[in-house]
Design a protein around this nucleic acid. Structure first.
Length: 215
DNA sequence: ATCCCGAGGG
DNA sequence: CCCTCTGGAT
C-alpha cells in the first residue's frame, strides 16, 4: 500500500470517528482566531479558551490591542506560558495589522508570516479556517507526532512534515485533517502512552506498536 | 519528569 | 542546526 493510499484510508477512518471536527480555539472573528492561535504555542487549547474571553472583552480588535500596555497584556496571557514573548507578539502583531492592513487579517501566507509572532503553523490555521485556502496542512505537535508514527514522514521539522503530508491528501481535506488528527492525538495517540489496544488504525494502517514506546 | 494546536534568534 | 521562552496539567 502506498503512503498516499494509506493516508487516505487513515483520514477516512478519522473522518468517521470525528465528523464535523472543527477549530477548538474559541473565536468570533479572524482577529480573535489569530490571537488565540498565537497563544496556543506549547499550551492546551482549553487553557487558551480560559484567557481569551477576558482578553477580547478588554481589547476587542487590532486597534485596541495595538494600544494596550505591554504589562497589562502580559498579565492577561500569563497562564498560557511564554507570556512575555506572546504579549509582545500580540501587541506588535496588532500594530502591524493596523499599519499595513487597515486592522484586518490578511489572506496570504506571505503577509501573515510577516506579522510578529506568526509562523507557518499559525498562518495555515488562519488561511484554512478563515479563508478556506490553506498553503499546507497545519502541523502542530500532535500532527507531527502522528505523521511520524504513521510512517508518513521521517522528519521532525514541522515545515518538512508539512511538505511530506500535503501531497498525500486533497487540499480540501487539509484543514479538517488537522482538526481530526488533533482530536485523535488527544484521545488515543498520545505522546506518552498511546492506547494502541483501542486504536482503529492499529491493524495494517499504522506501523507503530505501543511496544515501540519502550524501545 | 513530560507534554501542550510554536516562533524567533543565534 | 541549535537554543530560549514559560505556566499549568498529569
Amino acid at each position: 500500500m502506498t503512503p498516499k493510499v494509506r493516508a487516505k484510508k487513515i483520514d477516512a477512518i478519522l473522518k468517521k470517528r470525528y465528523p464535523g471536527a472543527s477549530c477548538s480555539l474559541d473565536h468570533r472573528t479572524p482577529f480573535e482566531l489569530l490571537v488565540a492561535t498565537i497563544l496556543s504555542a506549547q499550551c492546551t487549547d482549553a487553557r487558551v479558551n480560559m484567557v481569551t474571553p477576558g482578553l477580547f472583552q478588554r481589547w476587542p480588535d487590532a486597534k485596541a490591542l495595538a494600544g494596550a500596555r505591554l504589562a497589562d497584556v502580559e498579565e492577561a496571557v500569563r497562564s498560557t506560558g511564554f507570556y512575555k514573548n506572546k504579549a509582545k507578539a500580540l501587541v506588535s502583531m496588532s500594530a502591524d495589522l493596523v499599519a499595513r492592513h487597515g486592522g484586518q487579517v490578511p489572506d496570504t501566507m506571505e503577509e501573515l508570516t510577516a506579522l510578529a509572532g506568526v509562523g507557518r503553523k499559525t498562518a495555515n490555521v488562519i488561511l484554512g479556517n478563515v479563508f478556506g485556502k490553506p498553503d499546507g496542512i497545519v502541523v502542530d505537535t500532535h500532527v507531527g507526532r502522528l505523521a511520524r508514527r504513521w510512517g508518513l514522514t521521517v522528519n521532525d521539522d514541522p515545515v518538512k512534515v508539512e511538505a511530506d503530508l500535503g501531497p498525500l491528501l486533497p487540499r480540501a481535506e487539509w484543514t479538517g485533517f488537522s482538526h481530526r488528527a488533533i482530536l485523535f492525538g488527544r484521545e488515543l495517540c498520545q505522546a506518552k502512552r498511546p492506547v494502541c489496544g483501542r486504536c482503529p488504525l492499529c491493524e495494517s494502517l499504522c506501523p507503530w506498536s505501543d511496544k515501540q514506546s519502550y524501545l
